[in-house]
Design a binder for these strands. Structure first.
Length: 294
DNA sequence: AAAACTTGCAACCGCGTTCTT
DNA sequence: AAAGAACGCGGTTGCAAGTTT
């Protein structure tokens, strides 16, 4: 069915935001807080649709956004989370509070996807067959585990190197950053300040609590998945790293709905974690990338 | 030097979900 | 309960900057 686009009205401005528009938007949100986007264009005089205002705020103007290079740590997080959750960029972004979903999505599409593809191609071109090992639970699992361990063995460091300095940090990007800095110190109090700002007045306290609990569960789940994997020293062993070739994987074992577009992945790795009773403990250092990603 | 091509990212669009009346 | 409006998300596009020929 669908609705007509919200920006079809005559006189609605499209395209890049100017610093003046940003200042107007930021000033307004400073005063009224994010949310109720429909009233923003009316009250500010901005010739933008409400959607555009929300997007601009969420992706660029809200405080605490980190721009520029992704660290290898972040790369690893994205790779793992994408494998676990599929293209759920908002969900992935909730684990990287300084990054926006749009940023992560772009980075995945422009950098990480290529790296993974190249990784596959390189291995295929070498015509390397996984060693036979019945302990592996399925071919898919074993193929990936073997590929990664082989890559480690060869000491390959080229595939997942972080990109060099961002080539397109424009002058205006800097000014956006400055606007963002103006807002440092101003943030609405939140039960979890590190969490991605869901800018909706719909979130009352109960909802926030529920969300926080849910997020904690998800985070715990992912952290433990990470732990299990890294405990194998990046060598993975009988476990898998569910790096999809094209389709994303799901994580329904955790009750995370990842939609219908995903193909069912092998769950050996997740199942192993779920069956593992000793999966608590330290996590911070576990989120660091294995050598292959550095 | 300049045209052609590639890359990266900001912004838009369409649709599903949630809320309001 | 139903319909309409608003929100939020993921996919896609347009274009500027960078690179290659």
């Amino acid at each position: 069915m669908g609705r007509p686009p919200c920006c079809d009205k005559i006189g609605i401005k499209k395209g890049p935001w100017t610093p003046e528009e940003d200042i107007i938007l930021v000033s307004y949100i400073q005063e009224h807080g994010p949310g109720n986007w429909r009233s923003v264009p009316t009250n500010t005089g901005l010739m933008r649709c409400s959607k555009s205002c929300r997007l601009r705020w969420t992706n660029y103007l809200r405080p605490g956004i980190k721009r520029g290079n992704f660290t290898s740590h972040e790369e690893g997080m994205i790779i793992h989370l994408q494998a676990l959750l599929g293209n759920k960029w908002a969900a992935i972004a909730s684990y990287l509070p300084q990054r926006t979903d749009n940023d992560i999505k772009n980075y995945w599409n422009t950098h990480l996807k290529k790296k993974l593809k190249k990784f596959q191609t390189d291995l295929d071109s070498h015509n390397l067959a996984p060693p036979s090992d019945n302990s592996s639970t399925n071919n898919y699992d074993h193929q990936f585990s073997w590929q990664f361990s082989d890559n480690n063995k060869q000491g390959s460091t080229t595939l997942f190197n972080s990109p060099n300095a961002s080539s397109t940090s424009s002058l205006y990007a800097s000014s956006t950053e400055n606007i963002s800095r103006l807002l440092e110190g101003w943030m609405r109090t939140s039960p979890n300040p590190s969490r991605r700002n869901v800018t909706s007045d719909r979130h009352d306290d109960d909802e926030m609590l529920h969300e926080a609990q849910k997020t904690n569960q998800d985070q715990e789940f992912v952290k433990n998945c990470e732990k299990s994997w890294i405990q194998d020293g990046g060598n993975i062993g009988n476990n898998i790293v569910t790096i999809p070739k094209e389709k994303s994987t799901t994580c329904e074992s955790n009750g995370v709905d990842v939609g219908e577009k995903t193909s069912p992945p092998p769950f050996t790795y997740l199942e192993k974690w779920l069956l593992d009773e000793n999966n608590g403990g330290q996590v911070e250092e576990l989120m660091e990338l294995p050598m292959i990603f550095t």
